[in-house]
Amino acid sequence: MGTYWKKNQQRLAPWLFLAPGIAMFALYVIIPIFQSMNISFYEWDGLGDRTWVGMNNYVELMDDEAFYTSLKNNVIWLVLYMLAIPAGLFVALFLNQTVRGIRIYKSLFFFPFVISQVVVGLVFSWFYDPSFGLLNIALMSLGFEAIPVLADETWVTYGIIAAGLWPQTAYCMILYLTGLNAVDPEQIEAARLDNAKGLKMLWYVVLPQLKPATFIAVVVTVIGALRSFDLVSIMTDGGPWGSSRVLAFYMYEQAFGEYGFRMGYGAAIAVILFLIMMVYISAFLFKMYRDEKGR
């Protein structure tokens, strides 16, 4: 055994260090995914005996209007949440400058990342308040009528997304600031000698070196958009009339909320949410792989 270890130490040592992390990931992520898939084929209240119903939960989803509302809202979240990535990039480019007082600016932009989502939800709820919220005070001072953002079916989802973009932009900013510290200064200097500047410098020199940061930013932003539960719960509780529901919130309502303990139906919604997430992230991974292969 000692001889085998000496011969294969460099190959085995990384796996020994990774083993605890892999075990925890399998226990708390991989296994629950398959358990959720299994539960989705049952009618179950979480306590009593399970009743096998096959694909009935998925068939019921196809006729569930609330499910389609939640799905539509999640698509809107996915599309608009991507604004956090370019916004975080441009904030990081600004904060990467060596100007006076830059530490204060960094602290201000970093602040949304460290506060709780519950606090973010409460702050924006006050901001949108039709009576004393800053948004409507500004609108009325300009001669417009107050807009009850969180009570209007048209605006409510966009209002919650705007609240979520605040801390998500800060997170993407941190990723890009870290990536900018790793940008090769020799490539920057060579590009300047070739008279590259502004957008050309950004597009052809800086962004290619930020691909690892962009990959992480896209993945965490997609996951953040699809698991958007806390802001919806704090700001509207799915209202008005269920118009701000997203899949994660509707899953909770079905499994634990006012609809009773329909664990199987909630698990079916969770499986759909997981598949959407996997399709979105896999498509991005394939694109990155194709780009790297074509280099």
Rank of each mutant, 00 (worst) to 15 (best):
Tyr4Gly: 04
Tyr4Lys: 13
Asn8Val: 11
Asn8Lys: 07
Gln9His: 10
Trp15Thr: 10
Trp15Pro: 07
Leu16His: 06
Leu16Asp: 07
Phe17Tyr: 11
Pro20Ser: 07
Gly21Met: 06
Ala23Ile: 14
Met24Thr: 14
Phe25Pro: 05
Ala26Pro: 05
Ile30Phe: 10
Phe34Asn: 05
Phe34Gln: 08
Gln35Lys: 15
Gln35Trp: 10
Phe41Leu: 11
Tyr42Asn: 12
Tyr42Cys: 10
Trp44Ser: 02
Asp45Ser: 11
Gly46Ala: 08
Leu47Glu: 15
Trp52Glu: 08
Gly54Val: 05
Asn56Gln: 12
Asn57Gly: 00
Glu60Ile: 07
Met62Lys: 13
Met62Leu: 14
Asp63Trp: 14
Glu65Pro: 03
Tyr68Ser: 12
Tyr68Val: 10
Thr69His: 09
Leu78Cys: 09
Leu83Glu: 00
Ile85Gln: 08
Ile85Cys: 06
Pro86Leu: 09
Pro86Ile: 04
Pro86Trp: 04
Ala87Met: 15
Gly88Ala: 05
Leu89Asp: 01
Leu95Tyr: 07
Thr98Lys: 14
Ser107Trp: 12
Leu108Lys: 11
Phe110Asp: 07
Pro112Phe: 09
Phe113Ala: 15
Val114Cys: 08
Ile115Leu: 12
Val119Phe: 09
Val120Thr: 10
Leu122Asn: 08
Val123Leu: 14
Ser125Tyr: 06
Asp129Cys: 02
Phe132Ala: 15
Phe132Glu: 07
Gly133Trp: 05
Leu134Lys: 13
Ile137Glu: 09
Ala138His: 14
Ala138Cys: 13
Met140Pro: 02
Gly143His: 07
Gly143Ala: 12
Ile147Pro: 01
Trp155Asn: 10
Ile160Pro: 01
Ile161Asp: 00
Ile161Arg: 04
Ala163Lys: 00
Thr169Cys: 01
Ala170Gly: 04
Ala170Cys: 08
Tyr171Gly: 00
Cys172Lys: 03
Met173Leu: 05
Ile174Val: 15
Leu177Tyr: 04
Leu177Arg: 00
Gly179Asp: 00
Leu180Glu: 06
Asn181Cys: 07
Glu189Trp: 02
Glu189Thr: 11
Ala190Phe: 10
Ala191Trp: 05
Leu193Tyr: 08
Leu193Gly: 12
Asp194Cys: 12
Lys197Phe: 15
Gly198Asp: 13
Leu199Asp: 09
Leu202Thr: 06
Leu202Gly: 01
Leu202Tyr: 01
Tyr204Thr: 14
Pro208Lys: 10
Lys211Tyr: 13
Ala213Gln: 02
Ile216Phe: 15
Val220Arg: 09
Thr221Gln: 01
Thr221Tyr: 04
Val222Cys: 07
Ile223Gln: 11
Phe229Gln: 04
Asp230Ala: 09
Leu231Asp: 00
Val232Gly: 02
Gly238Met: 03
Ser243Gly: 00
Ser243Leu: 09
Ser244Asp: 01
Val246Gln: 03
Phe249Asp: 01
Tyr252Asp: 13
Gln254Ala: 13
Glu258Phe: 11
Gly260Cys: 03
Phe261Leu: 10
Gly264His: 02
Tyr265Ser: 03
Tyr265Arg: 00
Tyr265Pro: 02
Gly266Gln: 01
Gly266Ala: 08
Ala267His: 05
Ala270Gln: 04
Ile272His: 06
Ile276Pro: 04
Ile276Asp: 01
Met278Thr: 11
Val279Lys: 04
Leu285Ile: 15
Met288Lys: 06
Met288Ser: 08
Met288Ala: 11
Asp291Thr: 11
Lys293Cys: 08
